[in-house]
Design a protein around this nucleic acid. Structure first.
Length: 576
RNA sequence: CGGGGCGUAGCGCAGCCCGGUAGCGCGCUUGGUUCGGGACCAAGAGGCCGGGGGUUCGAAUCCCCCCGCCCCGACCA
């Protein structure tokens, strides 16, 4: 559509550029600070430069790619009825105090010294405030509000280039609904839009069940890309995928024996670990109830885990509805009279006691006697102590059977591209954002929130699409579709290349023209592969003498000779 | 925040152990020769050796403090 293309480069951005006049500072050597391919290549291709830890300048080429991604995101958000906003980065701190998130974000929130403002790390509060002031009737909903805007988070350790920065661009959207069913619809619309966005961006991704963490709410899913550089750990099976924070598996429970034997105290000198204990007492791990002691906010809680099962802090946090942290060794001694290896549930006073589901109803168990170097054997959790409740609290391990019965779990690392949350009424309650229903009764607005990391899409695309020579852009993401190279500075070559350049511009084709005169052919080819446009159009003297122009596909390396007269038509056919 | 590494020309690095006032490659400038896979020759420009303090006749080099960057961990919508 020629008209759209016209709009494209008139109002949006120039769709053509001469390399001789552009600022695209490519570098030959791999920067020593960069470890992962996307980071190395984004620097080498002149897309970004570091300004401070976790803070990057986007240079023209990088900015073009970001704009491509933003356009895709805009189109898909608009398609589900989203309305674009631009909310401020500066935000009054009182607003964040009202929702308890000054504390929740802690040091991760940037505070301003000379005003009572914070730099917004996300925008639930601002959205909710707008809703509180202007949404008053069920007739005003549903709404989907979004923006593509810079977020600030004081990450303790930025890393992996733009994958984890202290400042980054996020597409964040928020749904406002009158009911939980309506929230489900808004949530599903987002899930579908996200699938389209990541597919259009040429990313291989998968969706996992996730923890809501400090965002609060009733459910969430993450859109992940498998990558060693990732910071999330994912459990995957044939048809199951979940963040390790919430992943479950079909491991067997500790069996309850028919007979509960009498409990007895056993001297276990110098036994510190579960493995030593199992060896010393000659019992299997399923008979051991390991005690792990945490603070849940300021209350001590003893958690019983089977054998060597690892306690999952995220799960514990959800169960307790509180911040959790391991208890200090001295405090533990003071409260129980024993050290870490000898703690148990029997006769323990002042502790909330919960246990992993694997131990539910078990008997003839071994646990600490709350006396150093002593354990109790034949504990019956129903008979001998008060376990308040059982929950899934363990961290799954690779090789365990999938909870849906299909295959075994494998554990992979992933990068979180997007995250969608059913928030519910957490923010509308805190800020009293209510609406009146058909009968005139007030209810809190039901919210959802949804985020996509823009830089992550770009970096992940490069992680998945590169080779030893450089980036390999997908057409949808490429800053330019065509990298036109005038191989030599001979008159005929230059004239032909110039003609192709202007013809492509007239046609609305995005073209980067390597018109540099004092640069050797090899240098131009290396740059072209590094920058990674989908097609290179190579105008060289010998081919041209035979009336031919070469097209090289970056992805396959495949070269085609085309009659000079047909070159524009040929290029057009490639870009359909 | 804990552990480790690094900071010397725009970039990548050597020199530091063993103190004597700075070097290599790339890039850059000028001239010339090249022109299909990061060309060659010649002549140049460019550094408060991250900052401060100390030791010493003398510090890039040894000692102390600080700052910055990277990696591992902790943390993380």
């Amino acid at each position: 559509m020629p008209v759209l293309r016209f709009i494209n480069y008139t109002f949006w951005t120039l769709s053509f550029m001469r390399l001789s006049k552009s600022f695209i500072p490519t570098v030959k050597e791999t920067p020593s600070d960069a470890v992962i391919p996307s980071h190395q290549l984004m620097i080498r291709a002149g897309m970004v430069r570091l300004l401070a830890a976790g803070v990057y300048s986007f240079l023209p080429l990088g900015q073009r790619v970001m704009k491509k991604v933003m356009e895709i995101v805009r189109e898909e958000m608009d398609a589900i009825g989203g309305q674009e906003f631009h909310l401020p980065a500066l935000s009054p701190i009182e607003l964040w105090e009202q929702t308890g998130r000054v504390k929740a974000f802690g040091d991760n929130l940037f505070h301003l010294k000379n005003r009572a403002l914070v730099l917004a790390p996300t925008h639930e509060e601002v959205i909710c405030l707008l809703a509180k002031n202007h949404i008053s009737s069920y007739k005003d909903m549903p709404q989907i509000w979004y923006q593509i805007q810079t977020k600030f988070r004081n990450e303790p350790r930025p890393r992996s280039g733009v994958l984890r920065g202290r400042q980054f661009i996020m597409k964040d959207s928020y749904s406002l609904d009158t009911s939980w069913e309506a929230l489900d619809r808004s949530y599903d619309l987002h899930a579908e839009a996200y699938k389209k966005i990541f597919t259009r961006c040429g990313l291989k991704f998968f969706i996992v069940g996730a923890s809501s963490g400090a965002m609060g709410g009733t459910g969430s899913q993450e859109f992940m890309m498998e990558a060693d550089a990732g910071e999330d750990v994912i459990a995957l099976a044939d048809s199951y995928a979940a963040n390790i924070e919430v992943a479950t598996s079909n491991v067997p429970k500790a069996e309850r024996s028919a007979e509960s034997k009498p409990m007895a105290e056993v001297h276990t000198p110098n036994i510190k670990t579960i493995d030593q204990l199992a060896e010393f007492l000659k019992v299997e791990h399923a008979r051991l109830a390991k005690s792990v002691v945490y603070w849940a906010d300021d209350k001590p809680v003893l958690v019983l885990m089977m054998g060597n099962d690892e306690l999952n802090e995220s799960k514990l946090m959800s169960v307790m509805g509180a911040d959790v942290r391991p208890i200090e060794a001295e405090k533990l001694l003071a409260l129980t009279g024993a050290d870490g290896g000898s703690i148990g549930p029997v006769g323990l006073k002042g502790f909330k006691i919960i246990a992993d589901k694997r131990l539910e109803g078990a008997n003839n168990l071994v646990s600490g006697a709350n006396k150093n170097d002593y354990h109790l054997v034949n504990i019956d959790l129903q008979r001998d102590c008060k376990v308040e409740s059982y929950h899934d609290l363990r961290t799954v391990q690779a090789g365990e059977p999938s909870p849906d019965g299909k295959g075994n779990l494998r554990i992979v690392k992933g990068v979180e591209l997007g995250h969608i949350f059913k928030l519910g009424t957490k923010y509308s309650d805190a800020l009293t954002a209510t609406f009146l229903d058909e009968t005139g009764v007030a209810h809190p607005i039901i919210m959802g929130s949804y985020g996509i990391g823009m830089e992550r899409i770009v970096a992940c695309h490069i992680e998945q699409n590169h080779d030893a020579n450089g980036i390999i852009w997908d057409k949808a993401m490429a800053p330019f579709q065509i990298h036109l190279i005038a191989v030599s500075k001979s008159e005929v070559v230059r004239e032909m290349a110039e003609k192709i350049y202007t013809d492509l511009i007239d046609d609305g084709v995005e073209v980067l023209f390597d018109d540099r005169v004092d640069t050797s052919p090899g240098f131009k080819f290396k740059d072209a592969d590094l920058l990674g446009m989908p097609y290179q159009v190579i105008v060289g003297e010998k081919n041209l003498a035979a009336g031919k122009i070469e097209i090289k596909e970056r992805k396959t390396g495949e070269r085609t000779l085309v009659d000079a007269a047909d070159i524009i038509t040929k290029i057009q056919s490639l870009l359909v």
